[in-house]
Each structure stands twice: as C-alpha cells, then as structure tokens.
Amino acid sequence: MYIESKLIEVNETLFSQDFSHDRAPTLIKEEVNIQSYSWLQARCKIQASKGLFIVETFFENEKDITDIFSVSGEYIQISYLGQGDSHLISVKGKKPIGMGRINCCYNRDTVSTIEMPANIPTHYQAVYLSKEYYLELLKNETWVAESSFHKHIVQGDFQEWGACNFPIDYSLYHILSEITKKDWDSDFKKYFLELRLKELFLSLHFCQHKLYSGVGKGITEENLEKIRTAHAYLIENFKNPPTIKSLARKVLLNELQLKKDFKKMYGKTIRSFIIDLRMKKAKSLLGKYTVTEMAAILGYKSVPHFIDTFKKHYGYTPKQGLNQ
C-alpha cells in the first residue's frame, strides 16, 4: 500500500508513504507543516506502521486548493470531514464529501481529486488499512460475521467511496479523536491503536444497523438527513455551539421543525444534547486538567456555572469526582 497527497496549486507533497516494505514494530509519528505561503497554511499529523496509515489534517486557505490523493494496493478507508466544504471531483462532476459524515470504502489503486474552496477552513481525519492488516486485526472478532461491509472485503467486492456513509455520533467522534492523538507512549501506542481500531469497526457496524432499522420513523426522509447533519455538526462544535437559528440555517430547516424533529429523533432537546456532550467530555478530562482549565476547554465562561452543571449531571462536583 502506497499513499500520497499532493497539493496542485503549490506543487507541494503533503505526505508520501510506502508500505510495500516491512517497517519497524513501533509506530512512526510525523508532523508536516506548510506555512511558506501567505495564503495557505496546512498542518498534518501522521502515524504509520506496516499496513496502517492514520492522518489528521487542517487547512486554512485564502484561495481554492486541490489535493490529488493517491492510494495503491487494496485498502480499507475510514474518513471523516469535521470542518469544511470539500468536494470530490470526477468525470461525473462534483460530489460533496459531506461535513460531519463518516465515509467507509474498500478499494484499490485509486487517484482522487479533492477540491477545497477558499476561506473555508478544513479539518479531516482518515484511517487507511491494507486488506492484510484489516483481516489480521479482526480475525478473532465473532461479530464481523454479521457485518455486510466485512463480507464485501472478504469476498473482494469493492465498495467505492460514498457507498457506505452516515453522520457521525459521539462514540465514533470520540474513538477517532483517540486514534488520531499523538501523545500516547510509543511503547504502548501500537496496542492501544489495535484495540481502538477494533472498537471503531464495531461502532461502525452498530451505526449501519441503526440506519437500516428505521430509527427516524415519523420524520420525512428529507428532514431526517438534515437532522442527522445537525446532530453531527453539534458533535463537532459542542464546545462552541451555534444558536438554534444559525443551526437551522445551516441545515436548511425552520427552527420549530429542527427542534421538533431533533427531539423526536434523539429523545432530547438540542440544548440537553449539547450539555450531555460537554459533560461526557468533562468526565474524560478529570485528573488531567484543573477545574478552571476544564471549564475553558468546554467553552464555559463561568467556572461556577460549569461546576453547577457538572453536579446536576453527575450528582457530584468535578473535584469530588477525582476521589470516586
């Protein structure tokens, strides 16, 4: 498996990784920064070992930028556009990648053209696995027998990009964030990643099952897609959430319909959902940051308000939580 990302307008290679030869057993970590242009900043975090490539990239560009993304060999791709308005360009035209959506594919020897428009920051995360790595990773997982995506891979039935995609949920968002982190001890990172990757594929299987089981019954198909997009957008932006009005504009729904269908779909109001996301994140930060730092990270301007919200949610204060 070989992976390359090249930015056409500046003739810069963002990364180029060859997996055709054995690598050291430890995970290789790299950072790439392109800051030599007044109109473009690109920052890329990479982790790689034989058969595995993980990338998280941030773009800030004042002009349109085009990324030619090449992958050789059979591969499985899990990607997520957290921010931006990127489009996949083909002979059939432009296809939006879809912010807040997880895309899964199984393919081989592909060259993709990705267009990122000016003045819209882009953030994406992606995991690439060779077929051999994937099959070895999941060979002892009994649940894969029920996964349609896994069956396609075993049978060599390629699934092009976009054939399997759905809005992200908090579980997937959290797992991807953990996978793309670079601050784990390198001696244990490889084993940690393998566990997280298994969890990622299991969570993807659950998400597919939910979509096919008609979770959104009672909501029109058109509105259902907009509600899922709103849900995904809130997961990405819960630290600095939009107003109901701006969220409604973003997903092209009136405010009343957005609030009504969101509660019908997820069983809670948008405000309650944002609080839940913040509190889940707060619990994961316990012991790593001070209470004041936690409040700031989660977007609370008032520390007492954060403490009060935490206590209402869990029944104890953040400081008391450290002793539990």
Rank of each mutant, 00 (worst) to 15 (best):
R249F: 13
A126I: 12
D18V: 03
L200A: 05
A118G: 10
I275L: 12
Y106N: 02
L322P: 00
R228A: 14
L137E: 04
L27V: 09
L322Y: 00
V55F: 05
K239N: 12
Y170I: 00
K181G: 11
I68R: 06
R249V: 07
V291G: 04
G98P: 03
G315Q: 11
K217F: 09
F238H: 14
V91M: 10
I3W: 00
F53H: 07
H305P: 02
S177F: 13
P25R: 01
L298I: 02
H231I: 01
G98Y: 05
K250C: 06
I102Y: 07
F53P: 01
T292N: 10
H152Q: 12
G216R: 07
T110W: 06
N223H: 15
I275S: 13
Q47P: 00
E194T: 07
G315I: 03
I114H: 13
R271L: 12
P242I: 04
V144W: 06
S79I: 04
K283W: 10
L224I: 01
F166E: 01
L204E: 11
D22I: 05
L81W: 04
T317R: 06
F310N: 05
K319S: 13
D169A: 06
L211V: 04
D22H: 14
V127D: 13
G216T: 11
K280I: 08
G82Q: 03
L258D: 09
I153S: 00
Y316P: 02
I307M: 06
